[in-house]
Simulated scan of single mutants.
Amino acid sequence: MLVKDLMSYPVVTVSENSTVGEALDILKKKNIKHLPVIDKNQSLVGAVTESDLLKVFPHGKELSSFESNLLLRTPVSKVMKTNPISIAPDEIIEKAALIMCTNRVSSLPILEGKKLVGFITKNGIIEAFITALGYREGGTRVTIIFQKKWGFLSELVSFIDSKNIHIDNIVTFGNELVLKVKGNRQDFASDLKQAGYTVVDVSYIEPCEAKAK
């Protein structure tokens, strides 16, 4: 899965000359928490988040006339993070996740050359994780010990095929391998145990259609 498969577009942006008050209004109206900042040439010059802006004007605080006036006059360029970390649309989603984790940021603007073409947040990464595990579709989730040796996966898949069971999702986490198959198949776990695989967890997941915002 690539970054472009999960990015949001078109991107809601704000001008570097827009005020903090205008930026907060955009965030509220669009129900978002991140805003890329562009210059007159539509090039990315910075980024602001709701928390950045609320540090300047705390939410719920009754503003004085001076503070209200300041809110109207303070440009976003005064509070934005300059030179924001970005990523290209054809990069893999794992790289985006690592960049966010390493740099402790919750969003990344997506650039094609110098052009802003999309935006991805940590919610997009969570969406990819849920998709990889097939959680929404439901089914039987079985975790076994993953032996990192030649032929392990091919033998496992051949064994599952021999039982006429279709694998919906397969993911590894360190020394564990998670399989998800359709329906409530507790017998599948028993078959794996009898075949010599070490089963550490079996769970049945009800299908869930609701998507997180």
Rank of each mutant, 00 (worst) to 15 (best):
187 D>W: 09
15 S>E: 02
23 A>K: 03
132 A>Q: 08
86 S>D: 10
151 G>Q: 02
176 E>V: 01
19 T>M: 04
51 S>L: 06
187 D>E: 15
50 E>A: 11
60 G>S: 03
205 I>T: 05
82 T>A: 11
19 T>I: 05
101 C>W: 09
152 F>W: 07
12 V>C: 03
67 E>Q: 15
71 L>N: 06
111 L>H: 10
29 K>T: 02
62 E>D: 08
163 K>D: 02
198 T>L: 13
161 D>Q: 12
155 E>H: 07
148 K>F: 04
108 L>T: 06
119 F>K: 08
118 G>S: 12
139 G>C: 04
202 V>A: 07
28 K>V: 01
180 K>P: 03
17 N>Y: 08
102 T>H: 14
43 S>C: 08
156 L>H: 00
114 K>R: 15
186 Q>P: 03
192 L>H: 04
131 T>L: 14
143 T>H: 11
93 I>C: 12
42 Q>E: 15
191 D>L: 14
203 S>H: 13
98 L>Y: 11
200 V>K: 15
44 L>K: 08
17 N>L: 11
175 N>H: 13
191 D>P: 04
76 V>W: 08
108 L>E: 06
178 V>M: 05
89 P>H: 10
116 L>D: 03
60 G>V: 07
198 T>K: 14
164 N>I: 00
177 L>T: 00
96 A>V: 09
14 V>L: 05
168 D>L: 12
18 S>P: 04
85 I>M: 11
27 L>P: 00
50 E>Y: 13
100 M>T: 10
